[in-house]
Each structure stands twice: as structure tokens, then as C-alpha cells.
């Protein structure tokens, strides 16, 4: 810096009408940006307020313990909760190991060639396929071709395929975040590729993998369209006890109530939404806590 010489005052930069105009445009622009951001927040607030104020009165233990019924005061989510538990646990059992394995293949094993690139493009395209199309896949292949019928297993397989690309992509991100030096230190002492992966990379990436998987699962819990198409029942009378029982899930039970004309069912649906959102918030906060806990411990 050459000190000492003050810059010559530039003619017209300090307070011309033009500068004033530009500054007031900037001030207005800033408020427009703030309002645009506020729009989304207000929408979220209105949604939350509306659901809670409408559903609060209809919240009760009966909502959790009653089976579905044609009378709103006796209808509940009980069987749907079991259905959701069945579908989600099977989905996790299928999609989590498979998704993690596929991601490990792509990040640690795959040669960098045209096939790998196509595999990658294929996965990102799969993540963009509308969920209702996965429903058609499930209906066509699992329910009809393989003749599984409209049962838990067919629904879970459908949801597993739907969640797979999401889990693969988030696991890949987690694996990419593991520094190369860690792998090289293990290779340096003579470890094989699998040993490097299993003993160094996976443990280091695991919290992030788990966080991604929890988010994928919480998305799957709220999915309605694919299971509606792939054969979840509109009205079930008994609890699903195995893979080949018919089932319904929480969002589908809610859809069923929403499609009815009676006001009481719409209130009940709002209460059911509170239950569903409570479940999702619980899972998401678990994921956040997990992430924060481990991100404090790991330092590269």
C-alpha cells in the first residue's frame, strides 16, 4: 500500500441523484429478497399452525390403539402403524446393505471408465424417477409377474428400490469425505483393498452413512403414492404378522380419511398428520444428534 496520498475525490460519486436512485433500488431489492425468503417460512408456519390447531382436538390414545373404522370416533391408526413398521424395517434390511455396498463399489472399487460413468448417470436418473412410477414397477413386477400379491413383501421391495438411489448417493458423499491419506496409510502397510475399506474407510464414514440412511428412511415413511399403486390396502381388518399379509401404512390410512367427505375424518387426518410428523421429527433429530456427536469426535 502506498500510504500518504489520499485518493482524489471522484466527481459525482458521493451524492448524485443517480447514486441515490441506485441505493434506493438496492434497499428495495433487499426487502424483496427478504420477503421471498419469508414467503416459504410463512407457508411452513401456516401449514404447521393449521394442522396443529385442527388436529389437536382429535389427538387421543385411541388414535394410536384403534383399528380403522367407519365411525370417526372409533377409527385409529393402529394397524397402519404396524404396516408402516413392517414395510420400513424390511425396506431398511434390503436397501441399506445393498445401497452401502453399491456405493462402496462405485467409490472404492470401480475403475474410472465409461461403464462406471454410465452406472453413475443411471443412479442419478433413478433418483429423479417419480415415486408413482416405482409404484407401477412394484405392481407390475412384484405383485403381478412374481405373483406375490398385494402384500408386505411386495410393498417393501418397491420401497427398497425407491430408496436405493438415495442411499447410494448419500453413502457416496460420505465415502468421498474420508481423506485419501487415511486409505494410503492403510495401503502403505500392505492392506488389501477390502481390508482398507472394511477397517479404515467404513468406520470413518459410518456416522455420515447412517445419517443419510435415516433421512432416506424418513422420506420413505412419508411416501404414499408408490405403496398406493403397489397394493397397500385401503381398508384392512387385521394386523399384518408376516411378509405375505395385506397391509396399510400411516400415510395411506391418512389419505383414506382425507378422501372422505365427513368433517370428523378430516379432523382425524390432521391428528394423524401430527403423529406422522412427530415420528419424522424424532427420526430427523436422531440423525442430527448423531451427526453432531460424531463430527465433534472426528478430526482429519
Amino acid at each position: 500500500m502506498t500510504a500518504g496520498v489520499p485518493p482524489a475525490p471522484v466527481e459525482g460519486l458521493t451524492s448524485t441523484p443517480n447514486l441515490k436512485r441506485r441505493q434506493s433500488i438496492a434497499a428495495i431489492g433487499r426487502w424483496i429478497f427478504i420477503l421471498a425468503t419469508a414467503f416459504a417460512i410463512v407457508a411452513l408456519g401456516a401449514l404447521a399452525w393449521y394442522i396443529i390447531s385442527r388436529g389437536w382436538g382429535a389427538l387421543s390414545w385411541g388414535l394410536l390403539t384403534n383399528p380403522p373404522s367407519r365411525r370417526p370416533e372409533r377409527a385409529g391408526l393402529n394397524l397402519a402403524i404396524y404396516g408402516t413398521l413392517w414395510i420400513i424395517s424390511l425396506t431398511v434390511l434390503i436397501a441399506f446393505p445393498m445401497g452401502v455396498a453399491a456405493a462402496i463399489y462405485l467409490e472404492e472399487y470401480a475403475p474410472k471408465n465409461r461403464w462406471t460413468r454410465m452406472l453413475q448417470i443411471n443412479i442419478s436418473n433413478l433418483a429423479g424417477v417419480p415415486s408413482v412410477v416405482y409404484g407401477l414397477l412394484g405392481l407390475g413386477i412384484f405383485v403381478e409377474w412374481l405373483s406375490l400379491g398385494r402384500v408386505v413383501l411386495a410393498g417393501a421391495l418397491t420401497m427398497a428400490l425407491l430408496s436405493l438411489p438415495v442411499i447410494i448417493i448419500s453413502t457416496q458423499e460420505a465415502l468421498k469425505a474420508v481423506p485419501w491419506s487415511l486409505r494410503e496409510s492403510a495401503y502403505g502397510v500392505g492392506a488389501t483393498r477390502w481390508q482398507v475399506t472394511a477397517s479404515h474407510v467404513l468406520p470413518a464414514a459410518f456416522p455420515a452413512i447412517l445419517t443419510g440412511a435415516i433421512l432416506a428412511v424418513s422420506r420413505a415413511i412419508g411416501e404414499t403414492a408408490p405403496l398406493l399403486v403397489a397394493g397397500a390396502a385401503g381398508f384392512v381388518t387385521r394386523r399384518p404378522d408376516s411378509f405375505d399379509d395385506s397391509y396399510t401404512t400411516i400415510p395411506i390410512q391418512l389419505y383414506n380419511w382425507m378422501a372422505r367427505p365427513q368433517k370428523e375424518f378430516l379432523d382425524l387426518a390432521a391428528a394423524g398428520i401430527i403423529v406422522l410428523m412427530g415420528l419424522l421429527v424424532l427420526m430427523n433429530s436422531f440423525a442430527i444428534i448423531l451427526r453432531q456427536h460424531y463430527s465433534k469426535k472426528t478430526r482429519w
Binding site: 401449514l47 394442522i51 412419508g222 404414499t224 400415510p251 391418512l254 382425507m258 390432521a270 398428520i273 419424522l280
Partner: peptide
């Protein structure tokens, strides 16, 4: 907002 199941938006 992105995590809210779409059926809830439908109800809204």
C-alpha cells in the same frame, strides 16, 4: 419444507 410428506401438502 422439503422433508414434509407430499400427502400433507395435499391436505393443506
Amino acid at each position: 419444507l422439503a422433508g414434509i410428506p407430499t400427502i400433507i401438502y395435499g391436505y393443506f
